[in-house]
């Protein structure tokens, strides 16, 4: 079982991901990709997403879609940690959204990751 306190802090309003993505001309999404990869690796308790590849995933649509596919697979682990067993693998949904509207995939992931920090002081 992964220690909840050991998960890196990365709490954000999901809509802020969208806004900052546009306002910073996509630069924020590079930062977001690295941090999310760090959180997913910690949640899964193993190295699932390579951080250098996570940066470059934004450069190539298929890689970006695969990045969100891996993120979707980690949702089950997030559900286990937060006690929300209903939270299932949404890899296909995130993959499809990752192809057409990656920012929406990012918002969905951010929303679920935020649940990890409920009741935790930043």
């Amino acid at each position: 079982m992964v220690d909840r306190a050991g998960i890196p802090m990365f709490k954000n309003e999901p809509v802020l991901v969208l806004v900052l993505g546009f306002v910073t001309c996509g630069l924020y999404l590079i930062y977001w990709n690295i941090k999310m990869a760090e959180v997913i690796n910690a949640v899964s308790g193993r190295e699932v997403i390579s951080q250098p590849i996570a940066i470059l995933s934004g450069c190539c649509m298929p890689v970006n879609a695969y990045y969100f596919y891996l993120c979707g697979q980690a949702l089950e682990d997030i559900g286990r940690i937060t006690g929300k067993q209903r939270l299932s693998d949404q890899s296909m949904l995130l993959l499809i959204l990752g192809i057409f509207v990656p920012m929406v995939s990012a918002m969905i992931m951010q929303g679920h990751v935020n649940e990890l920090y409920e009741g935790r002081v930043a």
């Binding site: 001309c25 630069l27 590079i30 930062y31 390579s50 951080q51 250098p52 940066i55």
Partner: peptide, 24 residues
């Protein structure tokens, strides 16, 4: 060790940031 290097990731991010700022 390169694929899961945090330092490499942040280094690449800094490079992309600098590049994008300059070309913008």
């Amino acid at each position: 060790r390169w694929l899961f290097s945090s330092k490499l990731a942040w280094g690449l991010a800094a490079l992309f940031l600098a590049h994008h700022t300059i070309r913008s």
